[in-house]
Design a protein around this nucleic acid. Structure first.
Lengths: 403, 403
DNA sequence: CCGCATTTGTTGTACGACTGAACTATTGCG
DNA sequence: CGCAATAGTTCAGTCGTACAACAAATGCGG
């Protein structure tokens, strides 16, 4: 006989229990308001008896909390409202980026339990130093939470570069000047920490808002990163190195890019390229560009200043280039919503006309579907929120481990 | 209380049974050789007793067959070899394309049980007529199989266009001249038939061979279609309209494409574009181009004929363009193997140098991973094989329904 | 040729998880 | 105050897997 291919996993009885525990937990966590045990039974299709035992376990484990019963206006015994338990289990989002490092702690209700943000300039920095500093910040916060009896489930570290999440390895982060290193030990945290690409985690933060289940997230900064979300889950490709839209071909006759190729999107729609095109220094704050644009917008035909005109032209160039790269992205991946984050969020009003025009022109399915281009809804440092949410999603996926 | 979000699905006891039945079936079907019950137990992690009852059920249902025991050379009672049952349950792959229509029937062992291929020219054809003819062919074959007591599990219809598989709707197939129609009823088959894009199914046919679990499949013909396979499963995007690599930007200053945009890949690396570039009529057989290329290759420096030189140049242009589009694809999706099908399979020796050179230049992760470009291994009409395999995969995914 | 070690497959009991129905608890309403 | 309605709990029933013991079949050494 021969050795069989390693099949997924045998289902035992406790597999049932775990899966239904997850089902019940998700039902409560993803509901817009409190649910009773009977509501959960109706929503999941499980018998009321089963739901009761599962809920009891989740309540005992501290993931769910029972609120005082309240008359529902209807006849019959009122149900006991169940809600995610606040400040019992939390997830930590960490980030080391070019212009700041920080962390954010969320609990199961989605509340921010703690936050630290440290602005700085970490171009070509020493990873041991930077991650050591971040680790200190985090240790301080985590110890404080544990002293209050709060369980810290784990952390995600967001990094701006090619990340091999399985191996826990940062292959290269050009703007930080880091390459080929294993960052987690440098944090010195006694927590399960996983690493991920910054744009990917920022994309997940959008899921807290009213976004559809599938979308492309594109974050424009010095570099341009992207993430693919399908049915509320990240699509990572083979190693998680996808979404490198910054180096998609816009024009093979275009300027040389830092990656060595010619005419990459980054050379048209990267932050520095836009600023330079607008006649501003490449490290100027985005606000300078925005105020120039606002001037131009206020007096469009009446003859805006030459500076304003130039800024407008630069943004229009960026918009056309971005539209072209997004069209490729949509043609290859097929998603009908594009969420623009980073610097693009504020620039969107000026980018939109050109982006949308090019999309209509180049997307093959354009006659059949409208591509919805929108601004990111998650606040600043979205990757912190996304990372913390990702940790908590893991808790929901296996509540048994925390009960 | 509020209504809960519809969660996935409650796990009952029979869910266990179904899942383990699938596990056992897969173990036997995907193994390189026969397995005994004990082997299956070892491979799946299930208890021998459990495996026995599951195997008995699969044998009774006709999905598995017991071979006569054979002395294994080892001490101990010899195991009963289990193999996929031949010619008991079969899947049907159907295709209606520009230059042919046909069907192929595979059984669980992977053998071709029946096949019909009808060459023709179906540009701008009448869907009712063409699909009616295909349905007749299929009905004939299916009736014959059923008369032999063979269970026909279902069929997949491959179509060259944008297919909404969920709605069972072909939105548009430019080369057939079909649009906005529901093809399945036109076949007139009393079988569960689902539709899918041709390139997607052709990609799945590759899984029968020694291909890695994740790859991009690109099929070059008049149009250029692609499919994304990750961990042996198709990635379909939001509606299954992904992989439209034929309309990725190669050069915004390039020629106008039939889609209305400028400089699409199809204008450089589509079959007609290559033939025209080589000085051949756009409907010339591929063999003409290949023999020109072979001439040029035989006497590369010694002064090949002007025709051969021209053909070589056209293919090099196509190779560079294809490399550029593939680089975008790899940057956006992150897969390290590219399988070239359709006309590209035979052209690969001439395309390879330029494709690989551009990939190294433009793929951001190129210093970290070698992108393996290879020819498709599935034979002609790969979509037929892929479709039939897809049906059988469905049988394996829910053996209980067929037992 | 026989007994033993070894491996396979089967049988029977135990256990865990979900279900359905009956039962209790709690509320609104006439 | 009693009835209808709804929530939550209890309990026997069923189903599927696990474990251990056992029967079956083979190779090997004496």
């Amino acid at each position: 006989m021969t050795t069989a291919a390693p099949a997924s996993e045998a289902a035992r009885q406790h597999t049932l229990r775990e899966r239904n525990l997850e089902l019940v937990a998700r039902a409560v966590f993803e509901a817009p308001g409190p649910l009773s045990r009977a509501d959960v039974a109706a929503a999941t299709g499980l018998a009321r008896a089963t739901v009761s035992t599962l809920v009891d376990r989740l309540v005992a484990g501290g993931l769910l909390r029972e609120l005082p019963a309240v008359g529902g206006g209807r006849a019959g015994r009122p149900g006991v409202p169940l809600v995610p338990a606040p400040r019992t289990v939390v997830g930590v989002g960490l980030e080391a980026n070019v212009d700041y490092l920080g962390l954010r702690v969320l609990d199961l209700t989605g509340d921010v339990v703690a936050e630290r943000v440290l602005d700085g300039a970490f171009h070509d920095s020493d990873p041991a130093l930077v991650l050591g500093r971040l680790g200190e910040l985090a240790r301080d916060v985590v110890d404080g939470l544990r002293a209050q009896g709060i369980t810290v489930a784990g952390a995600r570290l967001a990094l701006p570069g090619l990340v091999d999440a399985r191996a826990g390895r940062l292959e290269v982060a050009p703007n930080l000047g880091w390459s080929s290193l294993v960052p987690v030990p440098l944090l010195g945290l006694d927590l399960p920490v996983e690493i991920a690409n910054e744009a990917k985690l920022a994309a997940l933060a959008e899921l807290a808002g009213p976004v559809p289940g599938s979308f492309l997230y594109v974050s424009g900064d010095v570099g341009i990163g992207a993430a693919i979300v399908v049915e509320r889950a990240l699509f990572l490709g083979e190693r998680g190195w996808n979404g490198e839209i910054g180096h998609v071909v816009v024009d093979p006759a275009g300027p040389r890019c830092s990656c060595g190729a010619f005419g990459c999107l980054e050379q048209y729609a990267g932050k520095e390229a836009i600023l330079r095109g607008a006649g501003l220094p490449p490290d100027a704050p985005l606000a300078d560009l925005l105020s120039l644009l606002a001037d131009g917008g206020r007096a469009p035909s009446a003859g805006a200043s030459a500076e304003a005109e130039r800024a407008g032209a630069a943004v229009r160039t960026a918009g056309r280039a971005l539209g072209s790269a997004l069209a490729d992205f949509v043609n290859l991946v097929d998603v009908s919503t594009v969420v623009l984050g980073g610097a693009y969020t504020d620039l969107l009003p000026w980018l939109r006309p050109d982006v949308e025009a090019v999309l209509v022109e180049r997307v093959l399915a354009a006659p059949l579907v409208r591509i919805d281009v929108r601004a990111a809804a998650a606040g600043p440092q979205a990757a912190l929120t996304g990372g913390a949410r990702e940790v908590l999603r893991g808790v929901l996926g296996d509540p048994a481990a925390w009960v």
